Amino acid sequence: MARITPSPAANEVYRLPPPLFDARCRACWVVAGIIALVVASFWSLDLQWARFLSLESLRRMGRFAAELATPALEPAFLRQLLPAVLETMAMSVVGTLLAVAAALLLALPASKLHAGDPARWRAPTRLVLNALRSVPELMWAALLLIAAGLGPLAGTLALAAHTAGVLGRLFAEAIENAPQGPAFALRVRGVPEGRVFLHATLPQVLPQLVSYTLYRWENNIRAAAILGVVGAGGLGQMLAFHLGLFQMAETGSVLAAMIVLVGMVDGASYAARRAMAR
C-alpha cells in the first residue's frame, strides 16, 4: 500500500494578521504621535469654518474673483507689464544659477563621500546650509535691500541665498546616496579623489541634480513674483502697487502674467526632464 506523504503546504502554520497597534512597534508610536499632533493643531487653532463658509463670505469672494477675472488689456498698461515679466524671469534665472554654483561648492564638504572619509567639514557646512534655507526669501530680501537698495539686485541675491541652502542639502544627500561601486573601483587604483568624483560620482547623480535645479527654478519664479512686494522689482512690485490701490483689473493682469510665466517654465522643465530620461 502506497504511503501518502503530506504536502509542504499542509505543514504550513497559518498565522493571524498582526494587530493594528502593537506596543513594541516603533512605527505605530510614530503614527500615533503624528495623529495626536494633528488633532492638537486643529483643537488649538481658532478655525472659524462657519464664518468662512457663510453666504456673505462666499458672496464677497465671488465679487472679488469677478473683478479679478476682467484684466486690464490697454496697450499702455501691457507695455509696462512686459518689462516686469522679463525682469521676474531674469531674477529667477540668475538667482537659480548663483544658487547652483554655491550649492555645489557647499555640497561637497557637507557630504561623506565614502566609509573612510573623515568628513571633518560635514557638520559645520550643514549648519551653514540650515541657516541659509531657514531664513525665508522675504527676510533675505528685506536684509539685502538695506545694502543693495530697491530693485532686482536684492531680490536676485535673496533667491540665491535661500535656494543655495535648499539645493546644497539636496545635492549633498544625492552625493552621499550615490552607488559606491564605480568610485571604489577607481579609488583602489589610486585615482585622486577629485577625479573619482568627476568620473564616477558626478555622472551618476547629475540627472538628479538637474532635476532638483529645474524644480527650484519653478519655485523661484513664484518667489521672485512675491519678492517684488518688498520692493525687489518685477511682477511682485506691480502686484503690490495695484493691489494697494484696489485696482482689480490691473491686479488681474499681473496675476494672469504670473500664471502664464509659471506655466511656461513648468512646460520647459517637464520637456527637459523627458529629454534627460531618454
Rank of each mutant, 00 (worst) to 15 (best):
A249E: 15
F197M: 12
T88W: 00
F21W: 11
T70N: 12
F197K: 05
T96A: 01
H162N: 15
N219A: 08
T251D: 03
V191K: 06
D266S: 02
F21G: 00
V166H: 05
F184M: 15
L144I: 07
E193T: 14
A27N: 10
D117L: 00
D22H: 12
Q237H: 06
A27C: 03
S44Y: 13
E74T: 11
A271F: 09
F171W: 09
F21H: 11
G252W: 04
G149S: 02
T125G: 08
S54H: 11
L82Y: 03
L108P: 15
R189F: 02
V205P: 15
N130L: 08
F64K: 11
T213E: 04
R187S: 09
A178E: 08
V39I: 13
P109S: 04
L159E: 09
W29P: 00
E12Q: 13
R195C: 00
P6T: 14
E56V: 03
S211Y: 06
P192L: 00
D117E: 04
I175W: 08
G151A: 00
Y270N: 13
A131N: 04
R122L: 10
A32V: 10
R26V: 09
V188S: 13
G149A: 01
R278V: 09
M248L: 12
A115S: 11
P203W: 08
R169N: 12
G151E: 01
W140Y: 15
R187I: 01
P83C: 02
N11G: 13
G168W: 01
M91T: 10
Q237A: 05
A257I: 08
Y270F: 11
L261Q: 12
P71K: 10
M91G: 11
A123W: 10
S7P: 13
A268Q: 10
S134T: 12
A277V: 04
F184A: 14
D22M: 04
P182T: 08
H242I: 00
